[in-house]
Structure formats: C-alpha cells, structure tokens
Amino acid sequence: MLMMNEKIKAREVELTGLDGEDLGIMPRDEALALAKANKADLVCTSLFSSPPPCKLVSRGMAKQEAAKEKKGQKPASGPIKVKEFRLTVHIEEHDYDTKLSQMQRLLESGKAVQPIIRIQGKEGDAARKLLERLIHDLAGKGTKETGIQVSGKQATVKLLPV
C-alpha cells in the first residue's frame, strides 16, 4: 500500500529530496510544506523503521510508479487447476479419441488432468490397461504425478503438464 502526504502519521520523517539528496530527519509538517512548495508528493517508502524514510516525488508520479510495479508483478502461482475426465472401461474408440484430444489441449495450456475410470465387478485390470494406454498416448504432453490408483469403484491417475 502506498502511504503519501497527510496519510503519513509519524511525527518525524527521514527525508530524501527530488534528486535523491539526503535532507535528514525533520518534522512531518515541515516535510509536507517542503513537498507543497516543490509541487511534489511526500511518499513513505517503508513503514517498518522509525523515523520512516520518505521521499519527495513529482506530483502524480508516485501513483503511476505504484501502478507500474503492481502490473509488473506476476500473479501468485496458486495450485494448478485439475480437470477430471470420467470414462468407463468399455469406451468406444471414437469417444476415447475425443477425450484424448481434450486432455492434450488442457495439458498444452498448462492445466493438469485426472482421468477417472468407473469400475464394476472385476474390471480393475481392464481399467489399469486403459489408463496405461492414456499415459502412453499423452507421453509428449504430460507426465504422471501419481501412480495408477485402483480402488473399489474407480481407477485414476493424475497427469501434470510437461
């Protein structure tokens, strides 16, 4: 957050001039008067020291610099989005190709995919084979984060983008 002019509450500030020259420690009101006389803003550069270091900046430039700095920061890279794909062991070839191309597109755009195959009865081995085929077909686009997990009613694997 940008603290400037009257928003600075400290009694004294350590002031730096328009050209970077050190003007020393002075009362806040005196620093504000100096800023107004030079048609400048008094900007606090750090709130963590006493007295707070402040500098004189040409009027309006402080907000522009803060906006530029904020724009330059990368957005916080949070967790990768994971898209789930539900399949069955008895998937037809055309449907498999469609799901495969959707997964490839998502992996290329930087998202993780998680195919989930529903299992009924003794389809565990068939589900594992289908997941292995998917991993093989997506080898250039994604790598598996987890091994193939087969549990009760489903088999799944998580693929991360390369």
Score class of each variant (00 low, 15 high):
M1R: 12
M1Y: 09
M4W: 02
N5M: 00
N5P: 03
N5C: 00
E6F: 00
E6R: 05
K7Y: 04
K7Q: 09
I8C: 05
I8Y: 06
K9C: 07
A10S: 15
V13G: 07
E14C: 10
L15E: 08
L15W: 07
T16V: 13
L18K: 13
G20D: 11
D22S: 15
G24K: 12
I25A: 13
M26R: 14
R28F: 06
D29V: 09
L32E: 01
A33Q: 10
L34P: 04
L34V: 08
A35T: 02
A37K: 14
K39M: 05
K39F: 03
A40H: 00
V43N: 01
C44R: 03
L47V: 10
S49H: 04
S50F: 09
P51N: 10
P53Q: 05
C54I: 00
K55R: 14
L56S: 05
V57E: 00
V57T: 00
S58G: 08
A62Q: 03
A62M: 00
K63N: 05
Q64C: 04
Q64W: 05
E65S: 09
A66I: 06
E69W: 11
K70P: 09
K71R: 15
G72R: 15
G72F: 11
Q73I: 10
Q73K: 15
Q73N: 12
Q73R: 15
K74F: 11
P75L: 14
P75Y: 12
A76C: 11
S77H: 14
S77R: 15
G78T: 14
P79W: 08
I80W: 04
K83V: 12
E84Y: 01
F85W: 12
F85K: 13
L87M: 15
L87E: 05
L87R: 01
L87Y: 04
T88S: 05
T88K: 00
V89H: 04
H90C: 08
I91C: 10
I91K: 07
E92V: 11
E93R: 15
H94Y: 13
D97C: 12
T98H: 14
T98M: 13
K99A: 13
L100E: 11
S101D: 13
S101M: 13
Q102M: 13
Q102V: 02
L107K: 07
G110H: 06
K111T: 08
A112D: 07
A112R: 08
A112G: 11
V113K: 03
P115S: 05
I116L: 07
Q120F: 09
Q120E: 15
Q120D: 13
G121T: 05
K122C: 05
K122Q: 09
E123F: 03
G124E: 12
G124P: 03
D125L: 12
D125T: 13
D125M: 12
D125C: 04
R128N: 01
R128F: 04
K129I: 05
E132R: 14
E132C: 07
E132W: 06
I135H: 07
I135S: 11
H136R: 15
D137R: 14
L138I: 10
A139V: 10
G140V: 10
K141S: 11
G142P: 08
K144M: 12
G147W: 03
Q149K: 03
G152A: 05
K153F: 00
A155K: 03
A155D: 00
T156I: 03
K158W: 05
K158T: 15
L159F: 10
L159R: 05
L160V: 08
P161I: 06
P161K: 09
P161Y: 08
